[in-house]
Design a binder for these strands. Structure first.
Length: 317
DNA sequence: GTATAATGGTCAG
DNA sequence: TGACCCTTATACG
């Protein structure tokens, strides 16, 4: 997925293009026809992200709750006032970033409404000036505000909110368990929004052994971990991509700011360039390659059904 | 064409 | 721990 940074960007985009708009809501695929009917013709008030959960609040006090899961993605389109990404969600290749519209379309063509749905579109939202299609989500449901609150109650602190006391709550959540820290970081009750890429990368950046029990993580390390996740995920929101390596590790074939602007990609937020796919991570999907820091071969192992990547030299207990 | 992977989560046992 | 759900792009016959 789509880790927390993507969902945050989605909430922002829905707010930007659809808030205050009356929406036609349908389920071309048919699997969500009932839920869509409850929202059809209503106005979107706000869009919120909590961890990996997206909540779209409508003027009849119902909420569209979406969790992209492993494969889910939204695609967008519309007239010239309809800005932002053309697709956000499950990447199909490692390090893939959001797709943006070409921008070379015939400028005077009037907006003719959404195209015929392609593939299995679970839900389509359409205003008078644009549309959004959802495919492959693990959760797509129409719920009440109270039910939305219940979903939130099950989530741990969200690094992209970073509210007062969250670092301490996160540290306590970690230290209460003997489970390996690498598994705890994926538990949304412990911390909400981290996925398989951020967990591998942040453990490397803190030089933490993945199998270290949560109870053995010192308070200072837990708080440093929280701060690093906050910083990395905020970068992810700005970049529209997960980049965990600093520029000193980037080779010259990445996307430059000029190149990005020319193609309509987001302009690199933190530097004069984006790294290439290969340079964006320290260990994620780099098993069999030399560690960027110590040249030891990066390893991969199955931990609770997901692939974990780490450097056995840099990350010792 | 058919298989497989992919940045998730839930439920049963 | 394992089975299962969701969808699509890519790799491989």
């Amino acid at each position: 997925m789509p880790e927390g940074h993507s969902v945050r960007r989605l909430a922002r985009q829905f707010g930007d293009v659809f808030a205050g708009r009356r929406l036609a809501v349908s389920s071309p695929q048919g699997r969500f026809s009932g839920g869509a009917a409850l929202l059809d013709g209503h106005t979107l008030l706000t869009a919120e992200a909590h961890g990996k959960h997206l909540f779209l609040h409508f003027d009849n006090s119902l909420v569209l709750h979406v969790h992209l899961g492993l494969y889910g993605a939204w695609s967008f389109g519309g007239d010239r006032t309809f800005t932002g990404a053309s697709s956000i969600g499950a990447p199909r290749r490692v390090g893939e970033q959001e797709a943006f519209a070409d921008g070379d379309d015939d400028a005077d063509a009037a907006y003719a409404g959404p195209p015929a749905p392609v593939g299995a579109v679970r839900v389509r939202l359409a205003s008078s000036h644009g549309w959004a299609d959802l495919r492959g989500a693990t959760t797509c449901e129409t719920i009440t505000a109270a039910e939305a609150e219940a979903v939130l109650a099950r989530l741990g602190p969200d690094p992209l909110r970073n509210r007062r006391g969250d670092a301490g709550r996160f540290a306590a959540n970690l230290q209460r368990r003997k489970t390996p820290v690498a598994a705890l970081l994926m538990d949304q009750k412990i911390i909400a929004g981290i996925g398989n890429v951020y967990r591998a990368e942040v453990l490397f950046r803190l030089r933490l052994h993945p199998w270290l029990p949560g109870s053995a993580v010192p308070d200072t390390a837990a708080r440093k971990l929280w701060r690093d996740v906050v910083a990395l995920m905020n970068d992810g929101v700005a970049d529209g991509r997960i980049i965990t390596t600093p520029p000193k590790y980037w080779t010259l074939d990445g996307t430059t700011a000029a190149k990005a602007a020319a193609v309509g990609l987001p302009v690199p937020a933190r530097s004069s360039s984006f790294p290439s796919r290969e340079d964006a991570h320290f260990v994620y999907k780099r098993h069999g390659l030399p560690c960027r820091v110590c040249r030891t071969v990066v390893l991969m192992a199955d931990l609770a059904g997901r692939n974990l990547y780490w450097c056995p030299q840099c990350q010792q207990e």
